[in-house]
Computed example of a mutant assay.
Amino acid sequence: MSKVWLITGSSRGLGRAFVEAVLEAGDRVVATARNPAQLSDLVEKYGERVRAVSLDVTSEAQAKGAVDAAIESFGGLDVLVNNAGYGNVAPVEDTTLAEFRAQIETNLFGVIIMTKAVIPYFRERRAGHIVQVTSIAGRLGPVGRAPYAAAKFGVEGFSESLAKELGPIGVKVTIVEPGGFRTDFAGSSTELREGRAEYDSSVGATVRFQRNYNGKQPGDPAKAAAALLKLVSMPEPPLRLLLGSDCYGAAEKSALATMESDRKWKDLSVSTDF
C-alpha cells in the first residue's frame, strides 16, 4: 500500500536519496528544505506525488505546517524521517557556546520539535513510524565532533524513551545510524577547523583524514535509501539500525570495549549498595 512520507533535510545527501527512493517506489512525500527551490526538479519530475515545503526544523510553527501540509495534500501521513542536521569539526576549546547551541538546536531540538508536531496525529490514528537519523556519533563520541555527538547521543536517549511511550499505542520508532556515506556531509556541508597546535594529533589528524576521506566513504546513499524502504515495510522494525560496514564495525568494537570496562570495574560499581 502506498505511504505518505515527511522527510526533513531533503535538498541533498541522504535526505535527497531517501526522497528519490520513496518517489520511485510509488509513494508520496512532503520533501522539506530551508530553500524549497532546491527541490524544484523533483516537483517537475514527479508532479503531484511530491510537495516541496520550506522548513526550518527549529521552528515549531513551520514543523506543524509541514505536518499539516502532508495531511492536506495527501490525506494523511505514515512516516516521518527526521534527517536534517549538520556537524562541524573543531576542538571543544575552540568551539564557541553559540556554535554548540546552534548544532544542538538543529540536531537535537529540531528532532524533538518535528517529533512532537507529528505525535498527536499518530496517536489519534494509533499508527505511524518515526525514523530518527542519527549517526555512529550517536553511539560513540568521535574526535572533533563534540557538539554533534552531544546532540546525536541526545536523540538516541530521547528516541529510546519515545519508543517505550508510543509502542503500546501502535506507533513505531526507529533510530537509523549511518556511518560514512558518499554525500557532501563531509564536504561543503561541514566546516573543518584543526584548532590550536596542542590538538594537532587528535582534532588536526581528524580534519586531515576527513579532507582525504571525502568522496571515498564506503556507504552508497542509494543503498541506504533501499534499506530505509525495507525498514518501514517491516511489521516489527528494530529500535536501532546501523548502516554501513564501517559503522557496524565501530559500533561492535565500542560495545565490546564498554562491556569489558564495566566488568573490570564491577566490584567498585556494586560496592555502593546498602
Score class of each variant (00 low, 15 high):
A186R: 14
G138K: 04
T174D: 07
R208W: 07
L42G: 02
I113W: 09
T115W: 01
A21S: 04
P221V: 02
E236P: 10
G244F: 07
T183N: 01
L14S: 02
L268H: 12
G65V: 04
R51T: 15
A31G: 02
L140R: 13
R193L: 05
A225K: 03
K216Y: 06
M259E: 12
S59N: 02
A127Q: 09
S201K: 15
T32H: 08
L239Y: 08
G13P: 08
N214M: 15
T32K: 03
L256Y: 11
I169V: 08
E20V: 04
T8F: 01
D68L: 10
G195M: 07
G85Y: 05
A52L: 09
V19L: 01
S161E: 04
S201D: 12
S54R: 14
N214H: 14
K230N: 14
E93Y: 07
S202K: 10
S135H: 04
R196Y: 15
L256R: 13
T96K: 06
A31Y: 01
S188K: 15
A25M: 08
D246A: 02
R193Y: 02
E124R: 10
S245A: 12
R51V: 13
F185K: 04
V22Y: 01
E252K: 15
T174R: 06
D267F: 14
T58M: 08
R145D: 14
P36G: 01
I130A: 08
N107Y: 05
R49D: 11
D94G: 10
D94C: 13
I7N: 00
A61T: 12
D267W: 14
V89F: 12
E191A: 11
A186H: 13
A117W: 04
N88D: 13
A251K: 04
T258Q: 14
P36Y: 03
A69R: 08
A61S: 12
D220F: 01
L14Q: 10
T190A: 12
D273P: 12
V143M: 06
G26R: 15
A163Y: 00
G128S: 00
K164W: 15
G219D: 00
A63E: 05
V171R: 01
I71E: 09
A84W: 05
S10Q: 03
